[in-house]
Design a binder for these strands. Structure first.
Lengths: 199, 199
DNA sequence: ACGCTAGCAGACAGATCTGTCTACTATCAA
DNA sequence: TTGATAGTAGACAGATCTGTCTGCTAGCGT
């Protein structure tokens, strides 16, 4: 009757509804109705709602990581260029209509530290940070940790505030700021630690 | 029996619980029980839960704005210094235990665009942005809008990601990055628009 | 033909959440 | 004394949410 297996339809529907309305705001009954699936089938694949939430977050993680890597790759072979180019993924995301910020930040706001869902969000952010740090190391900057941290701050800021005012300018500014930070880090006239005493 | 009026106790309890556990996760029954108030009294002051949520957000807005202004003022009379100094409020916030990110970003994640609650979060972010922009204008930089946007991106990034990994380094890095952006904007060798073509 | 698997349909239990309503108490001012 | 105000205590209705359970159907390999 429906395209794709029942599990896929459930996950597709959950992806759409969770992101658009929030996790707690969407009940399993709604997901079941909109995916055209029987309740028993739902609970067969996802014995608890939290397991569906985790599957949803894993899907978002895969998609978003893919977009980040693609945007970075498109910036050319120089890792320093890639550190700036990855912000094109942010621009593209913010331009999507129905954009409602970072699924992980939103999920973290709706979950308690220590739960499976919350741990997933922390793990995602850690993984992105590690990847950016890897690029920073390849770029040969003096303080790759500091640069990676600063860039992910800009990225998270763009993701978070984009949800509130939906200003397309924000992503553009984030990219420009990133370019400035990367340039400064390359010139090695600035490290995260040393600049603290400056101003 | 209790210190403060019933309304104050309700708001105090809501402030604590909403921030710690999220808005949807805290029912009015819990707030009523923990504030030691009768149900009728609760609904007398807050005829609907949403009105309590709005009062909660207004209180957070007052507190956070106060901290930002104080941190900026402490950086001295130069508006350029204040643009960097305001990040000390971020550092202080992140060091609080029980820190769980920005109450407004969290509230936005739990509410739908178009609702009173969501509008409150947008208004708050807009007000902070306008204030930062005012400082940037006073500092006489070429592109105050761009600088203000970039700085609030860093600020929101610190607020949001601080909730996930609770890395105290994040706030420090945000301040350092802000210092670099402000310096660059002062030297006027960079504007939000012009740098787009650079890298 | 038979059994296995996947799935549909929907009733049901138990918990929880918002909001209303009744009844009682204490304080204070006119 | 009387009446207004503020508050306490808790039952109740109605909706919603998660998760379980029973019955039924259709396809598919052996």
């Amino acid at each position: 009757m429906a395209p794709g297996s029942a599990r896929d339809r459930i996950l597709d529907t959950a992806f759409r509804l969770f992101y658009a309305r929030g996790i707690r705001a969407v009940g399993v009954d709604l997901i079941i109705a909109e995916s055209g699936v029987a309740k028993a089938t739902f609970y067969k694949y996802f014995p608890a709602k939290d397991e569906l939430v985790v599957a949803y977050l894993d899907r978002v993680d895969g998609l978003w990581s893919g977009q980040l890597h693609a945007a970075a790759a498109q910036a050319g072979p120089d890792p320093a260029d890639q550190l700036v180019g990855l912000f094109d993924a942010l621009t593209a995301s913010c331009e999507m209509d129905g954009y409602r910020g970072c699924a992980f930040i939103n999920a973290a706001a709706e979950s308690q530290p220590g739960t499976v869902v919350h741990d997933r969000t922390v793990e995602h952010k850690r993984r992105v940070l590690a990847w950016v740090r890897g690029l920073a190391v390849e770029a040969g900057v003096r303080d790759p940790d500091g640069l990676a941290r600063s860039l992910t701050l800009l990225l998270d800021g763009g993701l978070a505030s984009g949800a509130l005012d939906a200003d397309p300018q924000a992503a553009v500014l984030a990219r420009a700021s990133a370019a400035l930070l990367v340039d400064a880090a390359r010139k090695a006239d600035w490290t995260g630690d040393a600049s603290l005493a400056v101003r």
